[in-house]
């Protein structure tokens, strides 16, 4: 697992209070991990803080699964 993927999963486990095993690439924040709309906004903000990036709202709308978050960050985080 990439460094980005493990950090993303750690944030999701912490913020959504879910078990690490549930945080699979296909898992949807709202349908599988019990997030509501405010949780999802908070997750995006945590990703921005953790990786020091700004995720525009129109891009954030397309991030609804664990895998989508990891792949967006892998493309947009420089280091």
């Amino acid at each position: 697992m990439s460094d980005i993927a493990s950090r993303v999963k750690a944030i999701i486990v912490e913020k959504l209070g879910v078990d690490e095993n549930e945080v699979t690439p296909e898992a949807s924040f709202t349908n599988d991990l019990g997030a509501d709309s405010l949780d999802t906004v908070e997750l995006i903000m945590e990703f921005e803080k953790e990786f020091n990036v700004a995720i525009p709202d129109d891009q954030a709308e397309n991030i609804s699964t664990v895998g989508q978050a990891i792949s967006y960050l892998e493309k947009n985080v420089s280091n």
Partner: peptide, 9 residues
């Protein structure tokens, strides 16, 4: 502004 979405509620 980077307010937490749970700030108000």
């Amino acid at each position: 502004p980077r307010f937490n979405p749970f700030f108000i509620p």
